[in-house]
Simulated scan of single mutants.
Amino acid sequence: MLQVQFYTKNNCSLCDDAYALLMMLKRYYDFELVELDIYTNDEWLEEYQLLIPAVRMNDTFLTCEEMDLETLEHAIKNNV
């Protein structure tokens, strides 16, 4: 099963929007969503602080600038 790692933080409206998109796509595609709070890991905080929300699945990495329904769906379809 595809694992989608979702890098996020609390009180982030962009993260909330991306989460809603992922939940919508989860109804149509079989994947495991793993939420990763960047404030629980110093490496994640340093690497993703300005990029969240961010999603990683296999070799695909999407940042906040690419976080729209079409791009997410395309990435999931290509990785399932």
Rank of each mutant, 00 (worst) to 15 (best):
A54S: 13
R56F: 10
N58L: 13
N41V: 03
A54L: 07
D37R: 00
T40I: 10
E32D: 14
Q49W: 09
R56K: 15
H74M: 06
F61Y: 14
E46Y: 10
Y29A: 01
K9L: 02
L45G: 08
D42M: 09
Y29Q: 02
D68F: 08
Y39M: 12
H74D: 07
E70A: 11
Y28G: 10
Q49M: 06
F61V: 06
H74G: 10
D59L: 06
Y7R: 02
Y29M: 01
F31G: 13
E65P: 06
D17K: 13
L69E: 04
I38T: 15
D59V: 03
V55G: 13
T63W: 01
C64G: 07
Q5M: 04
D17G: 12
N58I: 05
M24A: 08
A54C: 12
C15W: 01
N78F: 05
Y48L: 15
Q3R: 14
I52A: 00
V4S: 12
K26C: 10
A75C: 07
V80W: 12
V80D: 06
F61H: 11
I76T: 00
E46C: 09
C64E: 02
M23K: 15
R56C: 12
T8R: 00
E35P: 00
F61T: 11
E70Y: 13
E66F: 03
L51D: 15
N78V: 05
L62R: 06
D16S: 02
K77G: 07
L50E: 06
Y28D: 14
K9D: 01
D68G: 11
T71Y: 06
T40H: 12
L22W: 07
Q49R: 11
S13W: 00
V4N: 11
L33G: 02
R27T: 06
R27E: 13
D16Q: 05
M24N: 05
T63K: 04
T8V: 03
L14Q: 15
N58F: 01
C12Y: 00
I76R: 00
T63H: 05
L21W: 12
L22N: 07
E73V: 05
A75P: 02
N79V: 12
L62W: 05
V4C: 07
R27D: 14
Q49F: 11
T71L: 05
Y39K: 15
E65N: 06
K77V: 13
K77D: 07
N10F: 04
E70S: 10
